[in-house]
Design a binder for these strands. Structure first.
Length: 405
RNA sequence: GUCCCCAUCGUCUAGAGGCCGAGGACAUUGCCCUUUCAAGGCAGUAACACGGGUUCGAAUCCCGUUGGGGACGCCA
């Protein structure tokens, strides 16, 4: 959450540290006759469960220990006495009213035989104890809610407002979980995603504000509401997240990108201590609209920092052929003479070079690009040359020529 | 199986009975720009699951069907 830029006001609270509170509430319900001791063993329950399933019926605890008056000298759990008639209604902020027939709600265990409380009991007690007004959670909890509502009532408390958000599904349409590829939030950090982008993407999943796609955290805080939340599950779409990430990278200040990309460079074995930040920022400006993630950005930067880049084999065959080498040799001489050494003057030189030789600009440009960066794709060549400077440009080009002859 | 939820382009969504011959975004296709790759611009393909109602009029309301998801633990 911290990585996402999210903050919280209280806690965290550990339920394991609050066991006494839950037990006290359990005792209270027991003494008021709203809960009872159940002596059925897990094994017995399992057998009964199997039997009902075999008969094709839905299992529900039959309440056989409800009316045992005397305390028996056997291990027991505390079960909550659910109403058996009538209806429990959730007035959900998102789903609207949801009705449950009380006859299908069974007496759930609130305290285990080892005297520890169960999840469904803990959350209710916590809400009561901490005077929680709104419970907002995934709609996989919707079915627990009617049971919880009855416990709030038994505790003499009006239940909080509920809002059950739709699930986020994986591309296979099953619930997103640790099992299938569902990368954890922090894994996106390592992949070079910006927390702002991920947060934006997640917020837009199941919620909308007209046609707006990009929201700052501040806007999200101001605009987020229950009315514009959707009811149906959404499928996680990595491509759109990637697009959003690239949008954020394009709009971010290059100085800020520099700060965030440095850890990636370090991670790639680059000594970032002697990097000239101003130079790095200039490079980032050129890379900003081409890199979709910080990781991509880092890989691109590496090419301009380290001179031992690899030349793509296909590119070499296509552009560093005999004609290309001849042109490159002449270009090295021209560049060597060039003053001042700026993107503008370099551009003029290239145009003049191609015109006087009757070749296309892109032919010489691509040849130099491949020699200089190892690839047919890069930011504007003249800017790259300027950024590298005369010395390193010539060093790189000569080394390519040297490697061939 | 039982119960609950949900249903608009491949995906995220706009849509609160007439403004919808359904809008935006991602992806995709074509074109433009161009020293490459991007970015950007323009154009295109593409959806109201189906069947009944209600209404002068339904993507919008009701019912059913189908499909999808979730829950059915001495897990959380």
């Amino acid at each position: 959450m911290k990585w996402l830029g999210l903050d919280w006001d209280e806690g965290p609270f550990r339920q394991t540290e609050r066991f006494d509170i839950y037990r006290a509430y359990g005792e209270k319900l027991l003494s008021e006759g709203k809960a009872y001791r159940c002596y059925c063993t897990p094994e017995e329950l399992e057998i009964r469960r199997q039997e009902t399933i075999e008969q094709g019926k839905s299992y529900k605890y039959d309440g056989r220990c409800r009316d045992i008056k005397d305390q028996i000298d056997k291990p027991f759990v505390l079960r909550f006495k659910m109403k058996q008639t009538g209806t429990t209604i959730i007035n959900d902020l998102i789903k609207g009213p949801v009705h449950y027939d009380n006859s299908q709600l069974d007496d759930l265990i609130i305290i285990r035989s080892d005297n520890t409380p169960t999840y469904n009991f803990c959350v209710v007690v916590d809400d009561v104890d901490m005077k929680i007004t709104h419970v907002i959670r995934g709609d996989d909890h919707l079915n627990n809610t009617p049971k919880q509502i009855q416990i709030y009532q038994a505790l003499g408390w009006t239940s909080p407002q509920f809002a059950h958000l739709p699930m986020i599904l994986g591309s296979d349409k099953t619930r997103l979980s640790k099992r299938h590829g569902a990368t954890s939030v922090i894994a996106y950090k390592d992949l070079g995603y910006l927390p702002e982008a991920l947060l934006n993407y997640l917020a837009r999943l199941g919620w909308s504000h007209g046609d707006q796609e990009i929201f700052s955290l501040q806007e999200l805080i101001e605009l987020f509401n229950f009315e514009n939340l959707g009811k149906s599950a959404a499928i996680f779409n990595p491509e759109k997240l990637l697009w959003l990430n690239s949008q954020y990278i394009m709009k971010m200040r290059p100085e800020d990108i520099a700060l965030r990309v440095i850890p990636f460079l370090k991670n790639d074995g680059i000594n970032t201590d002697n990097i000239d930040i101003k130079w790095l920022v200039r490079l980032i400006i050129l890379l900003q609209e081409r890199a979709k993630t910080l990781l991509e950005m880092s890989k691109s930067i590496k090419i301009y920092i380290e001179d031992n880049y690899q030349i793509d084999e296909k590119a070499r065959q296509k552009f560093l052929n005999p004609q290309g080498i001849a042109n490159l040799t002449e270009m090295v001489q021209e560049l060597d003479k060039l003053l001042p050494f700026t993107a503008e003057s370099i551009g003029s030189l290239f145009k003049e070079f191609s015109e006087t030789r009757g070749i296309k600009l892109k032919d010489i440009a691509q040849t130099v690009r491949v020699a200089l960066t190892g690839s047919t794709a890069s930011p504007g060549l003249f800017e790259i040359i300027e950024l590298l400077g005369k010395e390193r440009t010539l060093k790189r080009l000569k080394s390519v020529l040297g490697g061939i002859f």
